[in-house]
């Protein structure tokens, strides 16, 4: 029996269908287990001020006076939330003239640097670009491989 299973598994072309099947089964179980209870007391609440020109990135509060965000361990980052974003002069000009600066975050130099994110979840922001770097390294190595 184990020999049979191991024989099926040793063919690597069976692995993708097998994993897809396992995912489908688990997601089906997940749908059957709905509804899951939603905890109201969320650590990182998301309120969006549609009237702000920094729309999805405006995390609220006038700078240096009010802190509108929560963090799990406030004592680890005492200044989190005092500054919500940095704008270069160009970004400031854009934010005062248009309503859509938040949608152009990558399209102009010195966009919104999310101070809150970097303060509270700094390690994540380091690991994410590292994954991108590794992916680009593999892709460029394979692309440049001669013959």
């Amino acid at each position: 029996m184990i020999r049979k299973i191991s024989h099926i598994l040793c063919n690597y072309e069976n692995i993708v269908p097998l994993f897809a099947g396992a995912c489908a089964l688990l997601f089906l179980v997940g749908i059957l287990m709905l509804p899951l209870s939603y905890e109201q007391n969320q650590l990182y609440p998301k309120t969006i001020d549609r009237n702000s020109s920094l729309d999805p990135y405006d995390r609220g509060g006038p700078p240096f006076t009010m802190v509108a965000i929560h963090s799990q361990y406030p004592e680890n980052s005492p200044s989190a939330g005092l500054v919500t974003s940095y704008l270069t002069p160009l970004s400031l000009y854009l934010s005062q003239t248009t309503m859509h600066l938040g949608t152009t975050i990558v399209a102009h130099p010195g966009g919104i640097i999310d101070e809150i994110l970097y303060n509270t979840r700094g390690l994540d922001t380091v690991v994410e670009p590292t994954i991108l770097l590794i992916a680009f390294a593999i892709a460029s190595y394979l692309y440049r491989k001669v013959e």
């Binding site: 690597y12 692995i15 993708v16 209870s37 939603y38 905890e39 109201q40 007391n41």
Partner: peptide, 29 residues
Amino acid sequence: YQYGLVSLSATIPLFGGAAVYAATTGSLS
């Protein structure tokens, strides 16, 4: 390549699981 396909699709349950953790407990710590 086959293994890469699996690890690509595995990100969905992986990050989905973390999202359900955050939604139901309100914390990730």
